[in-house]
Computed example of a mutant assay.
Amino acid sequence: MPTILGQNQYGKAENRVVKITRDGDTHHIKDLNVSVALSGDMDDVHYSGSNANVLPTDTTKNTVYAFAKEYGIESAEQFGIHLARHFVTTQEPIHRARIRIQEYSWERIATSDANSKFIGSDEVNHSFARKGQELRTTQITFDGETWEVISGLKDLTVMNSTNSEFWGYVKDKYTTLKEAYDRILCTDVAAAWRYNWTSDGNRMPNWEKSYDQARKHILQAFAETYSLSLQQTLYQMGSRVINSRSEIDEIRFSLPNNHHFLVDLEPFGLKNDNEVYFAADRPYGLIEATVLRDGIEPKIPVDMTNL
């Protein structure tokens, strides 16, 4: 039966690059995991093995490291834009570039050494500890004319120890879950948001500030929502971001419900007054949804939160 080639891409995945910027005695770290995917006029390499239009994946790897030196890394988004523009505009067979970046965060280590040469500061300016919090993500796509930037975060674990209920749900003969009027609400936030910046002719967002603010609004909405369901909390988180950040048109969440069940202490003659819980890691409820600015069509793929 005859066959034809469908959608295809190639590139170098998971290029780990660490850029140290030295500002006198004060150093700054950008720690990225960069994946490059290129597509375009690639029929011949698939049909006949001709590499005439193929830029080696090793070259894409080298470009990542060279650009870290040449352009620096102001933000994950800006770095990805430099890379995508380069591959599409310098290689005629390449029609589309997709750059996916994960960013690992570091924080300065505080010191109590009063005799340190860093007198006047409680932080060592060149010593860092890896933050045990979320992973920042971004995907930049460029086709020679139009940009798409989708940024986000994953593995941001949050918990409300009260102000959460779950009751009034459908029950059938298999339902054993008891209604809860004061429960723990815990989840690992994975979110992806789409910027409405699409072309070089328009002013770019401040990528660093936008990320910080989107993260802040997600956390504030989680903390401030009296939750009757995780779905309600999700919608409040998304609405807070959309209503507060004009540069963001769409945000998608994937929220596992990290169940905490009250332990039965009655066999030991003890009363459990919402104090002792069993934290179950699986199975878990998984709540996913997209929140959009009114009038905007959804464009974020459903799997974007798995970057």
Rank of each mutant, 00 (worst) to 15 (best):
Q220K: 10
A190M: 13
A192R: 02
E247K: 00
I101M: 05
W197F: 06
L292C: 01
R136N: 02
T26C: 13
V45Y: 10
E297K: 13
I296A: 05
D44C: 01
R203K: 15
L38H: 09
D200Y: 01
A37P: 07
T198E: 11
S239N: 06
T225R: 05
L228F: 12
A190I: 07
A214R: 04
I4V: 07
S227L: 11
Y169I: 07
G144S: 10
L55N: 05
T305I: 12
Y65H: 03
H260A: 14
W106H: 07
L262F: 09
K171P: 05
T59R: 00
D294Q: 14
N258R: 14
F67L: 15
T89A: 14
I150L: 06
R245F: 07
N15T: 15
Y211D: 00
A97T: 01
L234E: 11
R85Q: 12
V45H: 10
T146S: 14
F253N: 09
A190T: 13
L265G: 08
H27N: 08
A289M: 08
A280L: 11
N125D: 07
Q133P: 05
T305A: 09
A129L: 14
I94M: 00
A110F: 02
A114Y: 08
E179I: 06
A289F: 03
T60P: 03
P267G: 11
G24P: 00
M304N: 01
L307Y: 01
G168E: 03
F67V: 13
N272Y: 06
T59A: 04
V45W: 09
T187H: 02
L177N: 00
N53Y: 06
T59L: 01
P301M: 03
T21P: 12
Y71N: 13
E77R: 05
V124Q: 04
H86R: 07
L286P: 00
S161Q: 14
T162A: 15
A180C: 03
A13Y: 00
F118R: 06
I150H: 07
D43T: 14
C186P: 08
R98T: 05
K209A: 02
T187E: 01
G152Y: 00
V189R: 01
V34S: 02
T21A: 12
W147Y: 15
T3P: 00
V36R: 01
V17F: 07
L177V: 12
F79Q: 05
Q7L: 14
A191E: 10
V64G: 03
K209M: 04
E288Q: 15
T59K: 02
F67C: 07
R194N: 08
I109L: 12
F261V: 02
F118T: 13
N243F: 13
W167A: 13
Y47H: 11
D182T: 08
E247P: 08
D281H: 12
L83T: 02
A68Q: 08
L185A: 15
L32M: 02
P2T: 13
N51W: 01
D155H: 11
R130E: 13
D113P: 03
Q102C: 04
H259F: 11
D155N: 14
D273Q: 14
D281Y: 04
R100S: 15
S35Q: 11
H86K: 10
P56T: 13
R240I: 04
K299W: 05
W197I: 07
P256R: 00
E145S: 11
I29H: 04
T146F: 08
